[in-house]
Design a protein around this nucleic acid. Sequence first.
RNA 1: GCCCCCAUCGUCUAGUGGCCUAGGACACCACCCUUUCAAGGUGGCGGCACGGGUUCGAAUCCCGUUGGGGGUGCCA
Length: 471
Amino acid sequence: MTDVASPRFRFAPSPTGFFHVGGARTALYNWALAKRLGGTFVLRIEDTDEARNKPEWTQGIIDALAWIGVKRDDPTFEGPYFQSEYADAHVAAAHRLFAEGRAYYCDLTSEQIQERSKQNSKPGYDGYSRDRGLEPGPGRVLRFRVPEGTTVVEDLVRGRVEFANDTIEDFVLLRGNGSPMFLLANVVDDVSMRVSHVVRAEEHLPNTPKQQMLWEALGHRPPVWAHVPVLVNEQRKKLSKRRDKVALEQFRDEGYLSEAMVNYLMTLGWAPQGDEEIVPWSRIEAEFRLEDVNHSPAFFDLKKLAAFNGEYIRAMSLDRFISACEPFLTEDVPWTSDQFDAEIFRAIAPLAQTRMVTMNEIVALVDFLFLAEPIIDEAAWSKTFGGEEAVAMLDDAIIAFGETADWNADALKTALEAAGTARGLKLGKAQAPVRVAVTGRTVGPPLFEALELLGRDKTMARMRAAAERAR
RNA sequence: GCCCCCAUCGUCUAGUGGCCUAGGACACCACCCUUUCAAGGUGGCGGCACGGGUUCGAAUCCCGUUGGGGGUGCCA
């Protein structure tokens, strides 16, 4: 192990798709530790699976990490390194192991291995070529000669985990074509990058005795291991890219705030001190300990994430909220840029802020203010104008508003309240037809404030149009 | 099958032998507030998987059972 005073952590994703929330949490754990302990966070892209890797995913990883605060320009950050560039070192290490008798070549095909396994009714590879003294050659894999005894993994979250070596098969180091396998490449890189702490998901725990033997065979003391529980879906299965919504990029695009996502992810398997779970990163960084990480899988709960996001949205200052809205106000919007009015938006923003769970919801909350005509939600329309009462109420509202001298929220409210009372309707009922007429929806920001911003002309025109349509 | 891990409200967790009549958060329900919807406030529902030990005392320690999960590739 390297200098304890300056630990080196690493995050080693493979660029095989969108960035997974589970990966994000692992990265965050490593990052929090590296920051607090004054260590280093090494990013190594494990791009050795040629069939599945795509270069564009690498940039995706870097961007996603930056989004959650793991930034390249931070002095704690080191890399990215690319595993594919170290293939020579991996092969050289394997050859050394062969020369030392720690590994041997085998010419069995996987079909033959399966056949033997079936015959002696033992799973996996049985060490058939251990003593055959095979030289390297095409189609021959290099296997590690697992020694006798027991391998004890000391894990910071699991404690002491023992593996009987006779349950571990002689695993492949080099493929038949001579290329290195994950187990080997991963260890050789960790050794050469002087990694002191391997913090990763629990699914790697079964690999750990193999890797630890490799560390030792290569003449090094193994790192500190820590295997954190996996994230699961509602069926309590490991989150998968195929069936679950896990892409960090998607959450970002829908308007989840990175602070909320980071905070939520950190509470999966761990909790800050005290009763508060919404805490700033500074506290997380100061308090996070691997020893405190839970041992059981955690359900990635979209509802709770949404609740966190809502909290974070409401906690923003008006200026921050407005600038956070901006990307969602310019792309994929129903209005044209000249229809948008920043002053009006600023006025409605505080009223929208408490009504959102994700930032992309801002559009539907304010669109009626910028569009020439509201987008009519048919379900809302038929529900509201199903009876004659609503149309009559709308007619009365048109008259009441027409007689209103000052066009402001208070005056409009007073006017509608009076009109409603005359028909025996409470304000809640009386406002409904007006709301649908003007905004197209049954829900939205407070009505009279919205009408004030919309202005007399547009409001009256929409109400008349709706009355016409409802007849 | 074999190896390994895990087990507190529906969910995420606090709890490290007495402070536990088990605390908080999300979700859910009710009420209050209220121009819709939210937000906010108040309250409620709800848990130590089971069985044995150890101990004066166990959610906490040990064993077993059951139940979940991960791994078992010439993927990473």
